[in-house]
Each structure stands twice: as C-alpha cells, then as structure tokens.
Simulated assay, not measured.
Amino acid sequence: MIEVYIDGASAGDPGPSGAGVFIKDGAGQVERYSIPLGLMSNHEAEYRALLAALQICIDKHYSVVSFRTDSKLVDEAIEKQYVKNKLFQPLLEEALLLIEKLDLFFIKWIPSNQNKTADELARKAIRSIDKQK
C-alpha cells in the first residue's frame, strides 16, 4: 500500500501558499513534491494539497493508497463527504471524484509532529514563490 502524507501551508491568511506531498511505497521508495499554490487561505491550501496528491497518485497508477493529514478539516470533510463552509464545496466534490478513480482509499488524521516532511515540503513551496518575486 502506498502511504501519502499531505500538508498545505500559507504565509498569511490569505497569503502565499504551498502544498507538500510525501509518498512512501511498501519497498521504502519515497517521492517528495513541493507545489506552489499562489495566494489563498491555509484551509484552501490543505484542500489543494489533497487534490494535488490525489492527481499524482492517479497519474502514477497508484490504486491502493492511505493518506495522512494533520488537517482535521480535510479529514472530516472526506470522511463525512460534507463541508460546512460552502467555499470548500467545489474542492470537496473534486476530491471525491478523484477518489472514485482509486481502487482503495483511506484517510487518517495524524498530529502535526508526525507530518513534518509534508509540512517542510509545503513551506519550501512558499519560499519558492517568495524567490520568484
């Protein structure tokens, strides 16, 4: 099973944002992605990190995946297939459509201290935006 750690981060609310995606396969191989996202809220960055990671998994034909996030908002939205904030409804719908393309999908909330690599990758993406200015 493929383990996927995701995190979104923003330098401000809204502010320059980035997504971090850290993927581990059963053989110990790892992939790291730092994805600049532009200006958005931290919560939107968390959803964008989920969407980016789902698309990476689909593109790489990873069909059995277990996601880890330190965002309770994203974890609960996926588990309940519902969001309170209607601004996030299109992001949730897009995520659910991508999840349907996978054979098996799990998502689990983890504490931030267990998601440090994805967090570092998200912050690296923000720094790359700052360097482009």
Rank of each mutant, 00 (worst) to 15 (best):
M1H: 06
M1E: 14
I2T: 06
E3Q: 11
V4H: 01
I6S: 01
D7T: 08
A9I: 04
A9S: 13
A9V: 09
S10T: 10
D13F: 02
D13C: 00
D13Y: 01
P14G: 02
S17T: 01
G18Q: 02
G18W: 07
G18Y: 07
G20Q: 10
V21D: 06
K24A: 04
K24Y: 01
G26M: 03
G28E: 05
G28M: 00
Q29A: 08
E31Q: 05
E31G: 01
R32D: 09
Y33P: 12
P36D: 12
L37A: 04
L37D: 09
G38K: 08
G38R: 09
L39D: 13
N42R: 01
H43Y: 01
E44Q: 14
A45I: 08
A45C: 11
A45F: 11
R48Q: 13
L50T: 09
L50E: 11
L50G: 08
A53R: 01
A53Q: 02
L54V: 09
I56V: 15
C57E: 07
C57P: 12
K60S: 10
H61I: 03
V64Q: 15
S66T: 09
R68F: 14
D70E: 12
D75W: 00
D75C: 13
D75F: 05
A77Q: 10
I78H: 08
I78W: 04
K80C: 08
Q81S: 05
Q81R: 02
Y82M: 06
K84L: 01
F88E: 14
Q89R: 10
P90C: 07
L91P: 14
A95E: 08
E100R: 11
K101T: 11
L102C: 02
D103V: 06
F105Q: 10
F105P: 10
I107W: 02
W109H: 15
W109M: 04
W109A: 09
I110L: 12
S112I: 02
N115V: 06
K116L: 04
T117S: 07
A118V: 03
D119M: 02
K124M: 04
I126E: 15
R127S: 14
S128A: 09
I129G: 08
D130R: 12
Q132V: 12
K133M: 14
K133E: 15
